[in-house]
Design a protein around this nucleic acid. Structure first.
Lengths: 137, 137
DNA sequence: CTGACTGCAAACGTTTTGCACGGTA
DNA sequence: TACCGTGCAAAACGTTTGCAGTCAG
Protein backbone atom coordinates (compact mmCIF):
# COMPACT_ATOMS: atom_id res chain seq x y z
CA UNK A 1 0.00 0.00 0.00
CA UNK A 2 1.44 3.30 -1.18
CA UNK A 3 1.60 6.33 0.99
CA UNK A 4 -1.11 8.29 -0.76
CA UNK A 5 -1.36 10.63 2.18
CA UNK A 6 2.07 12.14 1.76
CA UNK A 7 1.69 12.08 -2.02
CA UNK A 8 -1.35 14.30 -1.69
CA UNK A 9 0.40 16.49 0.81
CA UNK A 10 3.15 17.21 -1.69
CA UNK A 11 0.49 18.57 -4.01
CA UNK A 12 -1.19 20.65 -1.29
CA UNK A 13 -4.31 18.54 -1.24
CA UNK A 14 -6.05 17.30 1.89
CA UNK A 15 -6.05 13.56 2.38
CA UNK A 16 -9.72 12.74 2.61
CA UNK A 17 -10.88 9.12 2.46
CA UNK A 18 -12.63 9.83 -0.82
CA UNK A 19 -9.41 11.03 -2.39
CA UNK A 20 -7.38 8.14 -1.02
CA UNK A 21 -9.74 5.67 -2.63
CA UNK A 22 -9.86 7.66 -5.85
CA UNK A 23 -6.12 7.43 -6.15
CA UNK A 24 -6.26 3.76 -5.33
CA UNK A 25 -8.76 3.13 -8.10
CA UNK A 26 -6.84 5.18 -10.61
CA UNK A 27 -3.62 3.42 -9.80
CA UNK A 28 -5.26 0.01 -9.94
CA UNK A 29 -6.91 0.62 -13.31
CA UNK A 30 -4.02 2.60 -14.77
CA UNK A 31 -6.40 4.89 -16.65
CA UNK A 32 -10.02 5.52 -15.75
CA UNK A 33 -12.88 7.73 -16.89
CA UNK A 34 -15.23 9.65 -14.62
CA UNK A 35 -18.14 7.24 -14.87
CA UNK A 36 -16.16 4.14 -14.07
CA UNK A 37 -14.39 5.89 -11.26
CA UNK A 38 -17.68 7.08 -9.79
CA UNK A 39 -19.12 3.62 -10.07
CA UNK A 40 -16.23 1.90 -8.35
CA UNK A 41 -16.13 4.48 -5.60
CA UNK A 42 -19.73 3.75 -4.74
CA UNK A 43 -18.59 0.42 -3.38
CA UNK A 44 -16.77 2.23 -0.59
CA UNK A 45 -18.91 5.37 -0.36
CA UNK A 46 -22.54 4.60 -1.21
CA UNK A 47 -23.43 8.29 -0.87
CA UNK A 48 -20.49 9.81 -2.70
CA UNK A 49 -21.52 12.61 -5.01
CA UNK A 50 -20.57 12.79 -8.65
CA UNK A 51 -19.81 16.45 -7.98
CA UNK A 52 -17.17 15.40 -5.49
CA UNK A 53 -15.56 13.16 -8.07
CA UNK A 54 -15.47 16.00 -10.58
CA UNK A 55 -14.17 18.49 -8.04
CA UNK A 56 -11.41 16.17 -6.95
CA UNK A 57 -10.42 15.18 -10.45
CA UNK A 58 -10.24 18.85 -11.39
CA UNK A 59 -8.19 19.91 -8.41
CA UNK A 60 -5.80 16.99 -8.83
CA UNK A 61 -5.38 17.74 -12.52
CA UNK A 62 -4.86 21.43 -11.79
CA UNK A 63 -2.20 20.59 -9.23
CA UNK A 64 -0.49 18.21 -11.61
CA UNK A 65 -1.13 15.14 -9.51
CA UNK A 66 -3.25 13.61 -12.27
CA UNK A 67 -2.95 13.82 -16.04
CA UNK A 68 -5.83 13.85 -18.51
CA UNK A 69 -5.55 11.46 -21.45
CA UNK A 70 -7.62 12.24 -24.53
CA UNK A 71 -8.26 9.81 -27.34
CA UNK A 72 -10.42 10.52 -30.40
CA UNK A 73 -14.05 9.48 -29.94
CA UNK A 74 -13.46 8.40 -26.34
CA UNK A 75 -14.24 9.89 -22.97
CA UNK A 76 -11.28 11.47 -21.20
CA UNK A 77 -9.40 9.16 -18.90
CA UNK A 78 -7.13 10.07 -16.02
CA UNK A 79 -3.84 8.63 -14.85
CA UNK A 80 -1.38 9.39 -12.08
CA UNK A 81 1.19 11.83 -13.40
CA UNK A 82 4.39 9.94 -14.10
CA UNK A 83 7.45 10.10 -16.28
CA UNK A 84 6.90 10.69 -19.97
CA UNK A 85 5.45 7.74 -21.83
CA UNK A 86 3.31 6.88 -24.82
CA UNK A 87 -0.12 5.19 -24.93
CA UNK A 88 -1.47 2.15 -26.71
CA UNK A 89 -5.19 2.07 -27.32
CA UNK A 90 -7.02 -1.03 -28.51
CA UNK A 91 -9.90 0.00 -30.76
CA UNK A 92 -11.62 -3.31 -30.19
CA UNK A 93 -11.68 -3.82 -26.42
CA UNK A 94 -11.05 -0.20 -25.46
CA UNK A 95 -8.04 -1.03 -23.33
CA UNK A 96 -5.48 1.69 -22.75
CA UNK A 97 -1.90 0.83 -21.83
CA UNK A 98 1.32 2.66 -21.19
CA UNK A 99 4.37 2.02 -23.31
CA UNK A 100 7.79 3.42 -22.69
CA UNK A 101 9.56 4.26 -25.91
CA UNK A 102 12.13 6.86 -26.73
CA UNK A 103 10.60 9.83 -28.55
CA UNK A 104 13.59 12.13 -28.34
CA UNK A 105 14.34 11.96 -32.06
CA UNK A 106 10.83 13.16 -32.79
CA UNK A 107 11.24 15.96 -30.31
CA UNK A 108 14.51 17.00 -31.94
CA UNK A 109 13.12 16.89 -35.44
CA UNK A 110 9.99 18.83 -34.56
CA UNK A 111 11.84 21.45 -32.52
CA UNK A 112 14.29 22.08 -35.29
CA UNK A 113 11.74 22.20 -38.07
CA UNK A 114 9.15 24.32 -36.30
CA UNK A 115 11.10 26.64 -34.04
CA UNK A 116 8.68 25.81 -31.21
CA UNK A 117 10.00 25.50 -27.67
CA UNK A 118 8.39 22.12 -27.12
CA UNK A 119 7.45 21.14 -23.58
CA UNK A 120 5.45 17.96 -24.14
CA UNK A 121 5.39 15.17 -26.68
CA UNK A 122 2.12 13.25 -26.71
CA UNK A 123 2.12 9.94 -28.52
CA UNK A 124 -0.79 7.52 -28.85
CA UNK A 125 -0.88 4.40 -30.95
CA UNK A 126 -4.23 3.00 -31.99
CA UNK A 127 -4.71 -0.55 -33.13
CA UNK A 128 -5.67 -4.03 -32.05
CA UNK A 129 -4.08 -5.63 -29.01
CA UNK A 130 -2.61 -9.13 -28.97
CA UNK A 131 -5.60 -10.67 -27.23
CA UNK A 132 -8.14 -9.20 -29.63
CA UNK A 133 -6.04 -10.30 -32.61
CA UNK A 134 -6.12 -13.86 -31.28
CA UNK A 135 -9.85 -13.66 -30.58
CA UNK A 136 -10.60 -12.37 -34.09
CA UNK A 137 -9.37 -15.28 -36.08
CA UNK B 1 -11.49 26.85 -55.61
CA UNK B 2 -11.48 23.14 -54.86
CA UNK B 3 -14.14 20.82 -56.13
CA UNK B 4 -15.86 20.22 -52.82
CA UNK B 5 -18.88 18.85 -54.60
CA UNK B 6 -17.17 15.78 -55.94
CA UNK B 7 -15.18 15.39 -52.73
CA UNK B 8 -18.44 15.08 -50.83
CA UNK B 9 -19.84 12.75 -53.44
CA UNK B 10 -16.95 10.35 -52.90
CA UNK B 11 -17.98 10.13 -49.28
CA UNK B 12 -21.68 9.64 -50.10
CA UNK B 13 -22.70 13.00 -48.76
CA UNK B 14 -25.01 15.44 -50.50
CA UNK B 15 -23.45 18.70 -51.58
CA UNK B 16 -25.54 21.30 -49.80
CA UNK B 17 -24.42 24.91 -49.66
CA UNK B 18 -24.04 24.63 -45.90
CA UNK B 19 -21.61 21.74 -46.27
CA UNK B 20 -19.67 23.41 -49.04
CA UNK B 21 -19.05 26.44 -46.87
CA UNK B 22 -18.25 24.27 -43.87
CA UNK B 23 -15.52 22.56 -45.81
CA UNK B 24 -14.29 25.88 -47.05
CA UNK B 25 -14.00 27.23 -43.52
CA UNK B 26 -12.30 24.11 -42.25
CA UNK B 27 -9.80 24.13 -45.06
CA UNK B 28 -9.12 27.83 -44.62
CA UNK B 29 -8.54 27.59 -40.89
CA UNK B 30 -6.78 24.23 -40.99
CA UNK B 31 -8.38 23.14 -37.72
CA UNK B 32 -11.56 24.56 -36.25
CA UNK B 33 -13.85 23.93 -33.31
CA UNK B 34 -17.64 23.83 -33.43
CA UNK B 35 -18.19 27.29 -31.99
CA UNK B 36 -15.86 29.09 -34.32
CA UNK B 37 -17.19 27.14 -37.26
CA UNK B 38 -20.76 28.02 -36.33
CA UNK B 39 -19.84 31.63 -35.92
CA UNK B 40 -18.10 31.95 -39.26
CA UNK B 41 -20.91 30.15 -41.05
CA UNK B 42 -23.39 32.71 -39.81
CA UNK B 43 -21.80 35.21 -42.16
CA UNK B 44 -23.10 33.21 -45.09
CA UNK B 45 -26.17 31.63 -43.48
CA UNK B 46 -27.68 33.95 -40.88
CA UNK B 47 -30.27 31.31 -39.97
CA UNK B 48 -28.03 28.25 -39.90
CA UNK B 49 -28.75 26.01 -36.94
CA UNK B 50 -26.11 24.79 -34.56
CA UNK B 51 -27.81 21.41 -34.83
CA UNK B 52 -27.02 21.39 -38.55
CA UNK B 53 -23.38 22.08 -37.82
CA UNK B 54 -23.26 19.20 -35.35
CA UNK B 55 -25.09 16.83 -37.66
CA UNK B 56 -22.81 17.62 -40.55
CA UNK B 57 -19.64 17.40 -38.51
CA UNK B 58 -20.76 14.04 -37.18
CA UNK B 59 -21.68 12.59 -40.53
CA UNK B 60 -18.46 13.82 -42.12
CA UNK B 61 -16.41 12.38 -39.28
CA UNK B 62 -18.31 9.09 -39.48
CA UNK B 63 -17.66 8.89 -43.20
CA UNK B 64 -13.99 9.68 -42.72
CA UNK B 65 -14.12 12.95 -44.59
CA UNK B 66 -13.12 14.87 -41.46
CA UNK B 67 -10.85 13.93 -38.58
CA UNK B 68 -11.31 14.92 -34.95
CA UNK B 69 -8.25 16.33 -33.20
CA UNK B 70 -8.18 16.16 -29.41
CA UNK B 71 -5.78 18.09 -27.23
CA UNK B 72 -5.74 17.99 -23.44
CA UNK B 73 -7.89 20.74 -21.88
CA UNK B 74 -9.05 21.98 -25.26
CA UNK B 75 -12.25 21.70 -27.25
CA UNK B 76 -12.14 19.20 -30.09
CA UNK B 77 -11.12 20.62 -33.43
CA UNK B 78 -11.74 19.21 -36.87
CA UNK B 79 -9.59 18.99 -39.96
CA UNK B 80 -9.97 17.58 -43.45
CA UNK B 81 -8.73 14.01 -43.43
CA UNK B 82 -5.31 13.92 -45.07
CA UNK B 83 -2.11 11.94 -45.05
CA UNK B 84 -0.61 11.09 -41.69
CA UNK B 85 0.97 14.01 -39.90
CA UNK B 86 1.72 15.31 -36.42
CA UNK B 87 0.40 18.40 -34.67
CA UNK B 88 2.02 21.35 -33.00
CA UNK B 89 0.01 23.15 -30.37
CA UNK B 90 1.02 26.51 -28.92
CA UNK B 91 -0.05 26.68 -25.28
CA UNK B 92 0.11 30.43 -25.33
CA UNK B 93 -1.85 31.55 -28.37
CA UNK B 94 -3.77 28.31 -28.88
CA UNK B 95 -2.63 27.91 -32.45
CA UNK B 96 -2.66 24.40 -33.94
CA UNK B 97 -0.43 23.52 -36.87
CA UNK B 98 0.39 20.47 -38.93
CA UNK B 99 3.91 19.17 -39.10
CA UNK B 100 5.11 16.41 -41.33
CA UNK B 101 7.74 14.29 -39.64
CA UNK B 102 8.62 10.66 -40.01
CA UNK B 103 7.22 8.57 -37.18
CA UNK B 104 7.93 5.17 -38.66
CA UNK B 105 10.65 4.33 -36.15
CA UNK B 106 8.17 4.88 -33.34
CA UNK B 107 5.65 2.71 -35.08
CA UNK B 108 8.20 -0.07 -35.50
CA UNK B 109 9.38 0.12 -31.92
CA UNK B 110 5.86 0.14 -30.48
CA UNK B 111 4.61 -2.65 -32.74
CA UNK B 112 7.51 -4.86 -31.82
CA UNK B 113 7.38 -4.20 -28.13
CA UNK B 114 3.62 -4.43 -27.67
CA UNK B 115 2.45 -6.98 -30.19
CA UNK B 116 -0.34 -4.60 -31.20
CA UNK B 117 -1.38 -4.37 -34.83
CA UNK B 118 -1.08 -0.60 -34.93
CA UNK B 119 -3.26 1.31 -37.38
CA UNK B 120 -2.68 4.92 -36.33
CA UNK B 121 0.12 6.88 -34.75
CA UNK B 122 -1.05 10.11 -33.17
CA UNK B 123 1.60 12.64 -32.27
CA UNK B 124 1.09 16.07 -30.75
CA UNK B 125 3.76 18.44 -29.56
CA UNK B 126 2.86 21.10 -27.03
CA UNK B 127 4.96 24.17 -26.46
CA UNK B 128 5.43 27.80 -27.38
CA UNK B 129 5.49 28.90 -30.99
CA UNK B 130 8.15 31.17 -32.47
CA UNK B 131 5.96 34.25 -32.42
CA UNK B 132 4.98 33.85 -28.77
CA UNK B 133 8.59 33.25 -27.78
CA UNK B 134 9.53 36.54 -29.42
CA UNK B 135 6.60 38.33 -27.80
CA UNK B 136 7.47 36.98 -24.36
CA UNK B 137 10.87 38.50 -23.97
C1' DC C 1 -10.50 26.45 15.23
C1' DT C 2 -10.41 27.40 10.38
C1' DG C 3 -10.38 26.56 5.90
C1' DA C 4 -11.00 22.93 2.83
C1' DC C 5 -14.01 19.08 1.43
C1' DT C 6 -18.48 16.73 0.99
C1' DG C 7 -23.18 15.83 -0.60
C1' DC C 8 -27.22 17.59 -2.49
C1' DA C 9 -29.85 20.21 -5.68
C1' DA C 10 -30.06 23.49 -9.02
C1' DA C 11 -27.92 25.72 -12.84
C1' DC C 12 -25.30 25.75 -16.89
C1' DG C 13 -23.32 24.64 -21.40
C1' DT C 14 -22.96 21.33 -24.94
C1' DT C 15 -24.75 17.88 -27.93
C1' DT C 16 -28.58 15.14 -29.65
C1' DT C 17 -33.28 14.28 -31.04
C1' DG C 18 -38.02 14.72 -33.25
C1' DC C 19 -40.54 16.88 -36.42
C1' DA C 20 -42.28 19.57 -40.42
C1' DC C 21 -40.55 21.79 -44.32
C1' DG C 22 -37.43 22.36 -48.27
C1' DG C 23 -33.76 21.11 -51.55
C1' DT C 24 -30.60 17.74 -53.92
C1' DA C 25 -29.99 14.10 -56.94
C1' DT D 1 -40.33 12.08 -56.77
C1' DA D 2 -37.91 10.12 -52.93
C1' DC D 3 -34.92 10.81 -49.68
C1' DC D 4 -31.64 13.42 -47.32
C1' DG D 5 -30.63 17.76 -45.10
C1' DT D 6 -32.23 21.95 -42.70
C1' DG D 7 -34.00 24.80 -38.93
C1' DC D 8 -36.44 25.10 -34.78
C1' DA D 9 -37.60 23.67 -30.24
C1' DA D 10 -37.26 20.47 -26.76
C1' DA D 11 -34.80 16.93 -24.59
C1' DA D 12 -30.80 14.64 -22.96
C1' DC D 13 -26.33 14.68 -21.29
C1' DG D 14 -22.13 16.06 -18.91
C1' DT D 15 -20.12 19.28 -15.89
C1' DT D 16 -20.12 23.13 -12.65
C1' DT D 17 -21.86 25.95 -8.94
C1' DG D 18 -23.90 27.48 -4.39
C1' DC D 19 -24.87 26.25 -0.08
C1' DA D 20 -25.06 24.20 4.55
C1' DG D 21 -23.00 20.84 7.22
C1' DT D 22 -18.59 18.12 8.31
C1' DC D 23 -13.83 16.93 8.62
C1' DA D 24 -8.69 17.25 8.20
C1' DG D 25 -4.82 19.74 9.72
Amino acid sequence: MKDYKSMLKEYNLKATPQRMYMIGEIEKSGHIDIDNLYESLQTFFPYISLATVYKNINSMVDNGFLTEVKIPHQKSRYELTKESHAHLFCKECGKLEDIYIDTSMLFDAASKESGYRITDTLVTFEGICKECQAKDR
